[in-house]
Design a protein around this nucleic acid. Sequence first.
DNA 1: CTTTTAGGTGTACGGCATACGCTAACGATG
DNA 2: CATCGTTAGCGTATGCCGTACACCTAAAAG
Lengths: 210, 210
Amino acid sequence: MPRPRSLTPAQLASAALHVIDHDGLAGLSMRAVAQQIGMSTMALYRYVNDRDELERLVVDLVFGAVDTTPPAADRPWHQRIEIMADRVRDTVGAHPGIVPLIIAHRHRSTHLLGWSETVTGILAEGGLDGRDRVIALRSLSAYVIGAIQLEHLGPLGGPGTQVMAELPPTEFPYLTETATHARTVTADEEFHGGLANLLRGMTAETGRPA
Amino acid sequence: MPRPRSLTPAQLASAALHVIDHDGLAGLSMRAVAQQIGMSTMALYRYVNDRDELERLVVDLVFGAVDTTPPAADRPWHQRIEIMADRVRDTVGAHPGIVPLIIAHRHRSTHLLGWSETVTGILAEGGLDGRDRVIALRSLSAYVIGAIQLEHLGPLGGPGTQVMAELPPTEFPYLTETATHARTVTADEEFHGGLANLLRGMTAETGRPA
DNA sequence: CTTTTAGGTGTACGGCATACGCTAACGATG
DNA sequence: CATCGTTAGCGTATGCCGTACACCTAAAAG
């Protein structure tokens, strides 16, 4: 009987995401989002308790676009994990500004739970059980989160590598040498190479062939 | 010839760290740090260009406490990597509030470069070269960063696991089952277990025995 | 001493999240 | 069709924040 809402949470999140994509995470403010929508700042508080909740909506919106259906079971399990990891990486890569938000709100996104469920299932089919599976899931999460951050906050080809290359070789012999090779490694190779290492280690643990 | 400085950068960073340890990262402000020191807010700007630089000082102070000397070479290389990882984890664990600062300022800390140099050297002694070593270093960094964040922003025994355990089992069969085992895994086991997986994978790659 | 330089302070501005109280739009009911 | 209860949306105000700027003054060099 009362006045109907003119906005869905998804529309609100979408407006906030648009602000982030356009002006970066630093540009995200209640005022900016309100302007993007064409409402007053305080109107947003009818949809959201505080800024934190708005950020959560954004994370949920982005993760909602991640496909959580299990990949075809005829591939080896480690390859299926790789597909799942790539799906997250690709989705986040389309909105790199939200990376810090993911870390803060990761555990409150229901869509991410769906992703975890699928991954856990694949791990189980790979022969991992009990405590080993707990550790496998957590270390996979840690790697994916860390690698995505590294990729977007300090990319391989970026200034960080440049700094490494220009260090005094006498004091940093290994780093300077490694930096020269770093230029030839793409972001894809880096992500997949590290993931392959982790999966190989989990494989070796169970004694199951890759 | 002019008036001498009454503060070292380290003292400034220490005051800021004290604020963070006491009131959390959200409590960190130029005003709060100035009050902690007993100076006016604007006095800080004689030592630091902006808040960002203050944060950088904090990260440098904390990482300065990380021992970067190579561990005794008579241990197997993967064990030496583990020691290096533990040093970072222990140091950050003493000041969990700075975790988000690490991510933002990681690449500008000279002490962290020293840590990377030592780790890279150990990887080299472990038989990793060229592009494999680049990937090994980056995946190690990704894992350590991600795992530390997971540990402090969403610990295993925390509400996240509780949520997982209470999910509808029909929809999340694997997650709910995994959650029951999660209670028995400590933070140490989780961190070392995942790291062991990663190192095993790197070992397998080179064909070198662990 | 005086001079010079930089350390330290006080004030002010614009931007932020958000508490609070008002107005008016709308669906349901008579 | 008239009325009413509910609540969407807005305007205002408060108290934070970082920091630009002008000022005063401590203290070292001459």
